[in-house]
């Protein structure tokens, strides 16, 4: 029934009427538009554009905050190319991103589908979002204590089970997976909410058609939900991957880059060079490189996952 009615409505809908604004003079539009854009534009220029350009300029200088930057051309970049700590930080960051995004996206997708199909109570949906409402640093500190080797509750439980204790933040092999896990725990609810919004945008009648055709739940998920969810999923991936590459606070309040260099992620290394060692030129060059990497990653994701087109239209 519904399908028939919807189809009929679709046929009956008239061609889109011309927008009412078209008839007004363009210059007046422009003035009002500028007025509305102005706050965002000024903020963009003052807090993004100018600092970015200055950051790029500083990346070609030697600068320690005090005194004037000294132009040294590409020296920072050639030094970075030879810097073992930079390559290490890139590798460590990549390891983190893969673990973090991999687990986070899969778990969030499962949660979103559950929210969509099973858990319809607002309370349950709200609870899923709770970890995201706690400040990052607080989450990191709480897990840091709970996972402590000597006096943490998790290791106490492991002890009771008769298994050997794990130095979650202290062991080189465990440190990055642990930090990735902490951030998955914090962000999965929020990511699930974004995907959930995408799920709600998929028209119900398509599922009804699938059900009529006798498609299994598994098949429906892969053939209908996933393709129609793609634009939202791509957006979520672009945003979370960029956020993931910039992991800093969790590392800063727990391992501080250690043990040895196992968690010296690129943002931590930039911070260390800039604020601990006062190498602002070098740190700016590192930031520019991170900026370029993120630009390429976002471009590739949009290009190959066709994030800007929808299969619905």
């Amino acid at each position: 029934m519904t399908i028939v009615r919807q189809a009929a409505r679709a046929e009956a809908s008239p061609a889109p009427a011309p927008a009412p604004g078209r008839t007004r003079p363009r210059s007046k539009d422009l003035r009002i538009a500028l007025l509305f854009i102005a706050p965002a534009f000024l903020g963009f220029v003052a807090f993004y554009l100018v600092p970015t350009i200055r950051g790029i300029y500083l990346s070609f200088t030697r600068y320690n905050l005090f005194g004037d930057p000294k132009w040294i051309g590409l020296k920072n970049y050639t030094d970075i190319f030879k810097d073992k700590l930079f390559w290490n930080s890139l590798w460590v960051t990549l390891e983190y991103v893969v673990l973090n995004i991999g687990f986070q996206t899969v778990i969030a997708l499962v949660l979103a589908v559950l929210m969509h199909r099973v858990a319809k109570s607002t309370l349950v949906r709200g609870v899923l979002l709770l970890p995201y409402l706690i400040a990052n640093v607080v989450v990191a500190m709480v897990w840091f204590w709970m996972l402590d080797y000597q006096i943490g509750i998790v290791n106490q439980l492991i002890d009771w089970l008769g298994l050997p204790r794990i130095a979650f933040f202290g062991d080189q092999a465990w440190a990055i997976p642990t930090i990735a896990f902490v951030n998955v725990w914090r962000h999965m609810g929020y990511t699930a909410l974004l995907i959930f919004a995408g799920l709600q945008a998929i028209p119900g009648h398509i599922y009804e058609v699938a059900a009529l055709d006798g498609a299994s739940a598994w098949k429906t998920f892969w053939r209908i939900t996933m393709p129609l969810l793609r634009p939202v999923l791509v957006l979520v991936m672009v945003v979370t991957v960029i956020g993931s590459f910039q992991v800093f606070d969790t590392v800063a309040v727990t391992t501080g880059g250690g043990p040895i260099n196992a968690t010296r992620v690129i943002q931590m290394y930039i911070y260390q060079r800039a604020f601990a060692e006062s190498d602002f030129g070098y740190a700016s060059a590192l930031s520019v490189i991170l900026f370029i990497i993120l630009g390429i990653v976002a471009f590739l994701q949009m290009k190959f996952l066709r994030g800007n087109e929808s299969d619905l239209s």
Binding site: F144, W145, L147, D148, Y149, Q150, I151, G152, R165, A167, F169, G170, D171, Q172, A175, T254, T255, G258, P259
Partner: peptide, 19 residues
């Protein structure tokens, strides 16, 4: 303690816990 086990609670608090 091995280095990896000291990332976390500080030495003084471990002393206070009798460790």
């Amino acid at each position: 303690p091995k280095l990896e086990t000291t990332v976390g609670a500080n030495m003084a608090d471990n002393f206070g816990a009798g460790k």
